[in-house]
Design a protein around this nucleic acid. Structure first.
Lengths: 248, 248
DNA sequence: CGTATGGTTGAGCCTCCTCAAGCGCTGTGG
DNA sequence: CCACAGCGCTTGAGGAGGCTCAACCATACG
């Protein structure tokens, strides 16, 4: 699953061509890097270090100095905000090709950690920002990324502020269908819930128990099918998920 | 309060100097425009139309074509997301100097409306985006703006997903103190809640009644003082608001 | 085999929502 | 000038949705 980059690939950039590590990078196609010209890619390559983060390990703690950012090559990260007494809210989920980190901030306000073994291309934050200044096309891509993330965050604010548990679960499942759904053999759509019940709860602003109960209820109603405790499931009635999410 | 710009200021840009309308613009100091060079400002000026939005009027409806964006010169806007059955969530409040609109989107997903008489400098969206491409410094400013908005949105997601009513109110009041607080004559900090109870509820993901009750409770506890139904109030015990927001 | 982890399910409770009534202010029309 | 409607806000009573606490099950792992 993970690509076979060494932990510290320092192969020198090849002048005039796509640098070796980048050429073989799994994220080359859909990442920020995709629309960067050769010069920009070479500059990035000189800065970047390939790094593998074991499952559960954190990339950066809220409150620590914000020294690094990265491109996510393979795996998954969660970005969490916390209250002082330890309540957690997953503020974003990161997938291959996504930008990782908080730019232009001295100290990190969010904790970023790996949901599974995760492969990323890490840069010193300051140097990355300087490179950005010299490559307007990269800056433009990042602007697009930031605006997309902002749109996402706003949709989630609506869910967290105004939707009940059932609607949040329906919306979450529909997001998964849209992002990773594949037709199931016997009809319906197969999806894999990429995170645990607890993480789903932290993502949707609910508790583990409520998430579990709502999923069970969807199963009892024949809308969703899954083996007990399983993250692989198939959506049998996508239409009914839509009517749950959009009532009246 | 509002500046006296005509509804349609089409005075031609002055080559080599700050265009007349911009020079006298109240937002010139802290807006996107502030860090744009002469050439960029001239380009923007050629595009912009000064426009006054009466209180309550909408700048753009969710679902409509997304033809315009703007710089907020004076007044206040709210940006709302809605469910299909009419529940509303205020997703952002906009103040003078803020950028208004959704870039790079064919159709608007959010409704933007005026909370009071509001003065803005509106641009055709596509033309604005093209101008952006030619002025990397503007693009950089917008990136900063977008990242700041994203940071805000994430803090609000934590509040909406994980904080109770009392904590949300405390956080809201502390935000106002930080943004607009002025020392009160008899001690404490004077603030003006800039929106109605109903809008506060839509902003915090609560109901009008809960907002009202929580404010009354803070008053009864001597933390906050205000006349019945009044939006002007003084925070008597800022420290206690902090301990409400950050328990344990 | 015992423990740990993740998930499900149940019982009871609490916070916040819903519904309703009432207050004070403003603006309007008779 | 007063009556009245409308709006924003407050306050109360009751109910429901989701949280808390707890028990239990299945699987993985040492």
């Amino acid at each position: 699953m993970l690509s076979h980059a060494s932990l510290l690939d320092r192969s020198p950039a090849v002048a005039g061509g796509t640098p070796g590590r980048c050429a073989s990078c799994g994220a080359r196609g859909n990442a920020l890097c995709a629309s960067v010209d050769e010069a920009g890619l070479t500059a990035l390559h000189a800065l970047g270090r390939r790094r593998i983060l074991p499952s559960g390990q954190v990339f950066n703690w809220a409150g620590d100095r914000n020294n690094h950012c990265a491109m996510l090559v393979d795996g998954m990260l969660k970005v969490t905000a916390s209250t002082s007494d330890g309540r957690e809210q997953i503020v974003e989920l990161l997938f291959p090709g996504d930008f990782v980190g908080e730019l232009f901030e001295e100290d990190a306000t969010l904790t970023i950690s790996a949901l599974c073994e995760t492969d990323l291309c890490a840069y010193p934050r300051i140097a990355f920002e300087r490179t950005l200044e010299q490559h307007p096309r990269m800056e433009r891509m990042l602007l697009h990324h930031a605006l997309a993330a902002l749109g996402d965050a706003r949709a989630r604010m609506l869910a967290l502020g105004r939707r009940n548990a059932r609607e949040r679960i329906a919306g979450f499942l529909l997001d998964l269908v849209e992002r990773t759904g594949r037709p199931a053999p016997g009809g319906g759509v197969r999806i894999a819930i990429p995170i645990s019940r607890g993480e789903t709860a932290d993502y949707l602003g609910l508790t583990i128990e409520t998430v579990s109960r709502q999923l069970s209820r969807l199963k009892a109603q024949g809308i969703l099918a899954f083996a007990k405790g399983d993250r692989d499931c198939t959506v049998l009635r996508e239409d009914r998920l839509h009517t749950i999410l959009n009532p009246v």
